[in-house]
Design a protein around this nucleic acid. Structure first.
Lengths: 340, 340
DNA sequence: TTGAAAGCGCTAACAA
DNA sequence: TTGTTAGCGCTTTCAA
């Protein structure tokens, strides 16, 4: 259907070799010939056949991203922003972005294998690292280029970008203790996720040093959805002595927790303090606006992609492991302890 | 690096043709030979080189999806769910999913051209159709397979899935009028989007027949973000005689509108009614839970993908144009008009 | 400065 | 049932 270099060669009367070189802008082609060929290519509406090119160079010029989805209703503003960050950088660098969505487990690992073995992508972005992460183990054993969003619990050396969640939670702890809170609860995210560990540990450690040890009875685990935050918060609020503050490990669950509190007639920020983590755009326009730890998701996506492309090209990384230090955005969902 | 059919051929002592046929499970191969070859392939860890296969068949087994993003902070739960719907069906059918993110405009159209001309994908999913949609015009002119999420204003025949937004808004209109509302405002989405037209027109038309004509002064346009809903609602609430109900054209803006009302001390569902559209998971766990028109985003994604793959394979579509009829989920964000 | 030729891994006519 | 051969479109030695 569309023109090939062969067609162009026929038209201009040169060999396909010369055409190929002219179009790749090699400098061993007579300028006049080159100009003629390039002009003709435009006239004929030539577009290189990428499948042929990729095959012959055995490079896909594609990076892969497998999103861990839980259940069909995968409604997560976090990932759409990350995707935009990765995708825009990929496009900027002339790379395609191949996306898969799989629930963690065997099928997911299989998807990784397919990406690698089928040469579907030149490198992979691994998101939301887990304890004993089999994806990372696999990619390392296959010696396949990848960059992770998150660290791991194993002593493995690989490139990653992560945010210092422990530090972020430290800021939350300080803020709440300063506001007089002593009975602090936590709705954490699934414990098999690395960032859950960092955040919860960070919270626990900082509270300890502030002499307000975290009551282990007041820790709940949710699945990161708003619904889950709602349910876990309800459990906490049902306790005989309910907490004066709930530290939630992601914004979505924090919204759910706010709803739960509000359903009981509590004024969030006055009767109870609730904090989040991520600072998704919605956080500044909820009611009340959410106190939360910021995480530059879009930029992280960009960085991941940029680093990965360097890896793929065999270029050296100026920084192989990046740990970002977050800030705390204090808004109206948190305030002085009541009667404090 | 990895084994090829040539390697297998050498090992088993058959020709590469026979190996190729055995691995493709053709039935003109001796069962014993076939078994031997397949066994050997497994032993050798053979994985077909997709780039080679795709090149030779000149089919990418890939479908493309270009997400329209506005600005860097692309935090949209709607699209992540759609992506999951499309992606899971694609995986299920053995197709890859190529994703790009572009702001509407020239670069976006260029991305479409790249997909088409570079044979990057066998077919495209076009989301969020617009008035005079140049993407659709282009794909039609290029005779490239595509399926759209949404209709168009031009009299063009192409496969699509859409939800009957006018009907959905009719339900909202009925609900509000029944609750005694007469001063109804609307926060619409950008008027160049087809679904905005359908929803606003549907609202206007149904209100008309209910003898509660929509006051054109009470129509505002937002950009679909929570922030925008917040801002537009504030404008409406600043009017000398503020509306008793605000019909918002998507859930995210509805959340923003709720925040704006709540900031003024209004109780949403009592002092003012607010409705949304989409029924994203968050809608049932906001405070108060949001009355909204449901839209099965995940299923729509699946359908789009399934239809597209049929198109790509040259199979007939049993239904070329699908228009889904929505329902209204009445929750606590809407109620009887105050003092009504 | 240009061209001939080989080959990337695979599939599919056609022949045996 | 199996093998021979050609070729997909492109890049890249090597030779002229």
């Amino acid at each position: 259907m569309s023109a090939t270099i062969k067609d162009i060669a026929k038209r201009v009367g040169f060999s396909i070799t010369t055409v190929s070189r002219a179009l790749s802008n090699h400098d061993d082609v007579n300028p006049k010939t080159k100009a003629l060929i390039q002009q003709t290519a435009i006239e004929m509406g030539y577009a290189p056949n990428l499948m042929a090119r990729r095959f012959q160079k055995s490079k896909s010029d594609t990076i892969g991203l497998i999103l861990p989805t839980f259940g069909p209703r995968f409604s997560d503003p976090f990932f759409s922003e990350l995707l935009a960050g990765v995708g825009n950088m990929a496009a900027h660098q002339g790379y395609d972005l191949l996306v898969s969505t799989r629930a963690p487990g065997n099928e997911e690992l299989h998807a990784y294998q397919q990406m690698v073995q089928g040469h579907r992508a030149d490198g992979l972005v691994v998101v939301r690292t887990r304890l004993q992460d089999e994806r990372i183990r696999y990619l390392r054993s296959a010696q396949f280029p990848f960059v992770a969003f998150g660290r791991t619990d194993e002593a493995l050396d690989f490139p990653y970008v992560d945010e210092d969640g422990a530090f972020g939670m430290g800021l939350v702890a300080e803020h709440l203790v300063e506001m007089g809170h002593r009975k602090i609860a936590c709705i954490s995210s699934p414990p098999n996720l690395m960032f859950s560990q960092h955040r919860l540990d960070g919270l626990r450690a900082r509270l300890q040093t502030l002499n307000v040890p975290l009551d282990e009875e007041l820790i709940r685990f949710g699945d990161m959805t708003q619904r889950s935050g709602y349910e876990q918060a309800n459990q906490l609020l049902d306790l005989p002595v309910s907490p004066t503050a709930i530290v939630v490990c992601n914004d979505l669950m924090a919204f759910g927790a706010m709803s739960a509190a509000q359903d009981r007639g509590l004024t969030v920020g006055k009767d109870i303090s609730i904090t989040g983590f991520d600072d998704i755009p919605m956080a500044s326009h909820s009611h009340p606006p959410l106190t939360t730890v910021d995480q530059p998701i879009y930029q992280i996506g960009s960085m991941l992609c940029e680093m990965l492309i360097k890896c793929v090209k065999g270029e050296a990384l100026e920084q192989r492991q990046v740990l970002l230090r977050p800030g705390l955005n204090i808004r109206q969902s948190s305030g002085p302890v009541k009667g404090g």
